[in-house]
Design a protein around this nucleic acid. Structure first.
Length: 480
RNA sequence: GGCGCCAUCGUCUAGCGGCUAGGACGCCGGCCUCUCAAGCCGGUAACACGGGUUCGAUUCCCGUUGGCGCUACCA
């Protein structure tokens, strides 16, 4: 069932899942599903100051809501765990120990202040700030001395000084100059690993074959390649996808609107709609069919068709994609997702079939589920809100007679009232009153829904049911 | 500052040396229709700039400009 392709999504639990992260996760997931590989989720929580369990829960929840389920990760053991970096500390220590023993890494006793001082001086003198290697070849005696001063060392990699070339699946060949970095830290003074070290140890141990991540990590790739090499592990393939930016080309910011998956969920977007839109940001299908189900995305997805340039988030198009999903996804799913939006507005319908029927009629005109309550509120009992435009139709001279005629026509039919019987009665009543077209429909629509816009009238009447229809017509007739 | 990435309609994109530069969102019209949507038809709008390479560049190379990222004991 699965081949040897293994990819991972590695979020740091510092808040809700961002749409950028969601897209990275999506590309990994689609690639894995398309290739029949394994999708792994790994929690990068080595930054203890910012990571919280609550955030981890939130991120995992967001992924689950999107349907991006993992084959290995928190809660799903696949033999390469644990899947939380905070639980893998011994692994990093062992690897660092190994490098220390072979002389490929060394302990550095420089303090933050000393380093900061040197950095400033370098900047002032117009040099590139870089670790100067003072602790590179400390004698055991010198180290003892420094430790006696109470300094706790970090571990630095003895970085090979040479250019590094990487072949990226979406960007082609990239070359990093050797001047770019000095001996960088792999283990902090408290024994926790730095990002670039932990990532490599984890990716190697978890046998990740394709590292698909955001472009912001591109410069890190050089360090990581060096770590792979000194550790003696084989390099994975890299694919750096572009960033999602704002309309004004800057980083996606909160102030401009929703940025997290949770926010989009609350705004009434469907998981399938959001996923579809996100996929279109930086990837294009081989055909020109842009509205796709998850199954179609999996079938069509290829890394070769991922674009290297940053993409701006466009809510208009998201709405358009979501609107399509709203009316094309299974009615039961849409209705189930819509329930909480309706109930939040006090629109509770115990009969799910009837609720489904309402959603079915309303979804034609919706872009998001948050618009659902407004679109179906008139189906519910209680005081019917009547718009000004609707009131005008009700006050017309001919309306009273028309409605009376319709009530009596409806009285002639028996049993269930479906859209067909209602329409037949409507037509007959129209003949009685000598009106047709707009003059026939609008007064009735107004009486039944209190509005001048809405789904097909016959279907609306059927969902309302004979009792409500006659009740509302009678009430409107009396009031007109 | 240094290093790196990116550059086709307002936006998402197709294009992989020869195209009237295609599609989608949006916008503007029209059709359909009881209405709103949807749907259908039509319109609007782009190869950042300058050098090369080539018979021929949107496409390949270099530079400029612009945008973004990295430059932490954050990820």
């Amino acid at each position: 069932m699965s081949n040897n392709i293994r990819v991972r999504f590695a979020p740091s639990p510092t808040g809700h899942l961002h749409v950028g992260g969601a897209r990275t996760a999506l590309f990994n997931w689609l690639f894995a599903r398309h290739e029949g590989g394994t999708f792994i989720v790994r929690i990068e929580d080595t930054d203890r100051a910012r990571s919280t369990e609550e955030s981890e829960r939130a991120v995992l929840e967001d992924l689950t809501w999107l349907g991006l389920t993992w084959d290995e990760g928190p809660g799903v053991d696949g033999g390469h765990g644990p899947y939380r970096q905070s639980e893998r500390l011994d692994l990093y220590r062992e690897h660092a120990e190994r490098l220390l023993a072979s002389g490929k890494a060394f302990r550095c006793y420089c303090t933050d202040e000393e380093l900061e001082e040197k950095r400033k001086t370098a900047l002032v003198e117009g040099r590139v700030p870089q670790y100067d290697g003072v602790c590179r070849d400390l004698t055991p005696a010198a180290r003892k001395q420094l430790e006696n001063e109470g300094r706790s060392p970090v571990v630095r990699l003895r970085a090979p000084t040479r250019d590094v070339a990487v072949s990226d699946l979406v960007r082609g060949d990239i070359e990093f100059k050797k001047e770019m970095l000095g001996d960088f830290i792999i283990l902090r003074s408290d024994g926790r690993p730095t990002y670039n070290f932990a990532v490599v140890v984890d990716d190697a141990l978890m046998q990740i074959t394709h590292v698909i991540r955001a472009e912001e990590h591109l410069p890190n790739t050089m360090r990581q390649v060096l770590v792979y090499e000194t550790l003696g592990y084989a390099l994975p393939a890299f694919a750096h996808v572009s960033l999602i930016v704002d309309k004004d080309r800057s980083k996606l910011s909160k102030r401009r609107g929703a940025t997290s998956v949770a926010e989009f969920r609350n705004l009434g977007y469907l998981p399938g709609g959001l996923l579809n839109y996100l996929a279109l940001l930086g990837w294009s299908p081989p055909d020109s069919e842009e509205v796709m189900s998850v199954a179609e995305l999996i079938e069509k997805f290829e890394l070769e068709r991922v674009s290297p340039s940053p993409a701006a988030f466009d809510e208009d198009k998201l709405d358009w994609v979501n609107a399509h999903h709203l009316r094309e996804e299974p009615l039961a799913d849409v209705a189930a997702l819509g329930t909480r939006f309706a109930e939040a507005r006090g629109l509770v319908e115990p009969d799910f079939d009837r609720f489904e029927a309402m959603v079915d009629l309303a979804r034609e005109g919706l872009a998001r589920l948050s618009d659902l309550p407004d679109a179906i509120s008139f189906f519910f009992d209680g005081d019917l809100e009547v718009e000004d435009g609707a009131r005008e139709w009700l006050f017309r001279d001919e309306t009273k007679q028309l409605l009376a005629s319709l009530v009596s026509r409806l009285g002639e039919s028996e049993g269930e009232m479906d859209a067909g019987t209602f329409k037949a009665a409507l037509k007959a009543a129209g003949k009685d009153a000598g009106v047709k077209g707009k003059d026939l429909f609008m007064p009735v629509r107004s009486a039944l829904t209190g509005r001048t816009h809405g789904p097909a009238l016959g279907e609306v009447a059927a969902v309302l049911g004979r009792g409500r229809v006659i009740g509302r017509l009678t009430q409107a007739e009396g009031g007109s």
